[in-house]
């Protein structure tokens, strides 16, 4: 039983690290896409750097409320579900 508690504690710590890394990655990918979107638009050529920064900030604000960001919580849910399913199949089937 103590083993299960140990798994839960260390698993939570490890998954938190993974969650943070995936969050940073996802945010970085979104920011890069926004930058490229702005830079590749011919209509925006010669516009001010401030406008570009504002556009990217608005995009990032939208990202913060997006489903994609919320789905990163699957990083916790999927491994926990796998452990639960494995435990059930191995011991109760």
């Amino acid at each position: 039983m103590i083993g299960l508690i140990r798994l839960a504690v260390f698993g939570f710590v490890a998954l938190t690290v993974v969650y943070l890394l995936v969050s940073i990655y996802s945010r970085s990918v979104r920011r890069e896409r926004l930058e490229k979107e702005w830079d590749s638009d011919p209509a925006r050529e010669g516009s001010l750097l401030d406008e570009r920064a504002a556009f990217i900030e608005a995009g990032m604000a939208a990202y913060r409320h997006s489903l994609r960001r919320k789905l990163i919580v699957l990083v916790y849910i999927i491994p926990m579900a796998i452990v639960a399913i494995t435990t059930y199949l191995v011991n109760y089937q």
């Binding site: 083993g3 798994l7 494995t86 191995v90 011991n91």
Partner: peptide, 15 residues
């Protein structure tokens, strides 16, 4: 198997 490795989480050896 215990709870870490290998990840089978098996505790029903008697059964």
């Amino acid at each position: 198997t215990g709870w870490v490795w290998p990840p089978y989480f098996k505790y029903d050896s008697s059964n």
